[in-house]
Design a protein around this nucleic acid. Structure first.
Length: 577
DNA sequence: GCCGTTTTCGGCCCGACTGTTTTCAGTCG
């Protein structure tokens, strides 16, 4: 699958075209094509082979040709031409705050500046202020921007960090400042696995007091700007938090606007235009009368556009607007639909808490059942269990079950899919377990063919019901095993295997694209598990549910949303038949 | 360069802010 790689080329093409001063709409076309390719749920090579690239929205004849050329030859003529016209290193100059394509171009043409080093030198020698469209302030801003770039973080922050931080800020403001309404927006509200910055909206009759409180919170490392309607701060995690005060009658429109995604909002505004309406962060306006016709609530914004209210997690312009037009959006799974958590560890292997402690906390969180799935013996590093130790654990579970009934604990195991696809124990011994999970923990660098084969072989064991963290991807870390996910899903359909959405915020694997594909293209069931190694992580379920919602899943798609009774039926099915 | 329940040509999302101008371009989200 080369989608990411191809998309990258078109982002590059867009950026260089812009620097070369090409038609702005062509630049946008390249960007949109890049985004469309990035979000494809299947390899772009497949469509290229079938000569159906233009069936993708945003890809026409010209871009299709470029894709084909790139896939076959590894190059795009147009891109090479552009590179001759404008140095690639200008892309870095564009990233300096305050500079964009236009100014980078002027700097290059008038002063021959190609690198950030040259830029710094020219700014310090006061050579920039005399250029057309530049001035002393811009020059100062460049110098400041260059020094800030150096200590700026490069990666986005995990939602596991950003969401609790945002919640604590909201909590403080609610308790200690005069807020009437408050809402976390942006990518956090959409439950994206990684977050660039935090956006919070507030309605208040004393905005200054809210701003003052916000700017003096303990989490604030520095204040970026503090104005009447907007204050931006930097936290110690180097995360920017923007707080905006809006009018009550515009709150819904502002929440909609600042929730995004950008692509979703562009589509929304295009749709509005066709209806002779205008959507902005203040409301929806009739273009003839210039009157506001909606905006106090988010629902009203969607309603006047003839749309069903769209859950934030779906707002990525991947078809949600079209479905909302027909009022046929699925009823997405919610945290409260989750009845069990079947992936967690105890002190028996590498966990920090006992069976009883894990069970009590899970029960407190509203789960009706859990499965303890300690590591199996091949994972020595995690104190993996022998069959004898699992038998001991089983006795303990039986005792705790009596104590906590009707809450129910199942004995599970996280088996290792060994390098040849075999498991830690022979099938005859796997009957000890109520349900078996299996995952790859070693030999992650095998070829795509081998990784795919061993995963499928593991799935063929009748006791194995769930493949955990199926692609091995880690957020901001490794990108996942080489794996033919389509073959794995196809086999999953044959064997009745469920696939995990690992809810640990550093994993979130399957991701939304694969989870959605598993459901829509293969009709598979998913499992959402916290993979908890302590009682504290059991609350991570919400991140997994976030991914599930981004994948358009309903509670019917998720096995641990089954009631205790139904779940028991599920786990016995394969072993008995 | 793409696209069409008004269009195969003429459009293509919106507003704030800043700094540079003397009415606006560039950048940003």
């Amino acid at each position: 699958m080369r989608n990411k790689e191809v998309a990258q080329k078109f982002y590059e093409l867009a950026a260089l075209s812009e620097l070369a001063g090409e038609n702005a709409f062509r630049v946008r076309a390249y960007q949109q094509a890049a985004q469309a390719i990035e979000n494809l749920p299947f390899p772009i090579e497949d469509l290229a082979d079938k000569e159906q690239l233009t069936s993708i929205k945003g890809i026409g004849k010209s871009i299709a040709e470029k894709i084909v050329q790139y896939l076959h030859t590894g190059r795009i003529d147009k891109l090479e031409e552009l590179k001759k016209k404008v140095p690639e290193s200008l892309l870095e100059i564009e990233r300096v705050p305050g500079l964009g394509a236009k100014r980078a171009k002027i700097l290059y043409e008038k002063l021959g500046i190609k690198t950030v080093e040259e830029l710094k030198k020219a700014a310090e020698e006061k050579k920039i202020r005399v250029l057309p469209g530049f001035g002393e302030k811009t020059e100062q801003k460049i110098i400041k921007g260059l020094s800030e770039m150096r200590n700026k973080r490069i990666e986005r922050v995990s939602i596991g960090i950003a969401l609790p931080l945002a919640e604590s800020i909201v909590q403080e403001l609610k308790l200690h400042s005069p807020v009437e309404k408050i809402e976390i927006c942006g990518s956090i509200r959409r439950m994206k696995p990684t977050i660039g910055d935090i956006d919070i909206l507030v309605v208040s009759n004393k905005p200054e007091a809210v701003m003052d409180k916000f700017a003096s919170l303990d989490v604030v490392k520095s204040i970026i700007v503090k104005g009447k309607t907007k204050t931006s701060i930097l936290t110690y995690e180097n995360l920017q938090v923007d707080l905006r005060v809006v009018q009550k009658e515009s709150f819904g429109a502002a929440v909609q606007y600042f929730t995004g995604s950008k692509q979703h909002n562009i589509k929304i505004r295009e749709l509005a235009m066709k209806k002779n309406l205008k959507v902005n962060e203040y409301g929806v306006f009739d273009l003839d009368t210039n009157k506001r016709i909606a905006g106090e609530t988010e629902e009203s914004v969607y309603e006047v556009l003839g749309l069903q209210w769209i859950p934030p997690e779906m707002r990525e312009d991947t078809g949600e607007i079209e479905v909302a037009k027909m009022h046929k959006l699925p009823r997405l799974i919610e945290l409260k639909d989750i009845k069990g958590d079947i992936h967690m560890h105890t002190v028996y292997s590498d966990g920090a808490n006992t069976v009883l402690e894990m069970a009590q906390r899970a029960k407190q969180l509203g789960r009706k059942y859990i499965a303890i799935s300690d590591h199996a013996k091949a994972l020595g590093i995690a104190n993996g269990l022998s069959i004898e130790r699992y038998k001991k654990e089983k006795k303990e579970i039986e005792m705790v079950n009596k104590k906590l009934a009707p809450f129910r604990i199942f004995l599970s195991t996280e088996l290792n899919i060994l390098s040849d696809g075999s498991l830690d124990f022979p099938d005859s011994e796997l009957t000890l377990f109520d349900i078996c999970l299996a995952g790859i923990h070693t030999g992650m660098n095998q070829s795509k063919e081998k990784m795919t084969e061993r995963t499928i072989k593991a799935m063929s064991h009748r006791a194995v019901r769930v493949i955990v963290h199926p692609t091995g991807a880690v957020i901001n870390g490794r990108s996942g095993y080489e794996l033919d996910i389509d073959r794995v899903f196809e086999a999953g359909r044959r064997f009745g295997t469920a696939f995990e959405i690992n809810a640990a915020p550093e994993r979130l694997d399957l991701n939304e694209i694969n989870a959605r594909k598993a459901k829509e293209q293969y009709g598979l069931k998913l499992e959402i598990g916290t993979d908890s190694h302590s009682v504290e992580s059991l609350v991570n379920m919400r991140y997994g549910v976030g991914v599930a919602r981004r994948a358009w899943l309903t509670k019917e798609d998720v096995i641990n949303a089954l009631s205790l009774k139904e779940f028991e039926k599920f786990i016995h099915k394969k072993i008995i038949d």
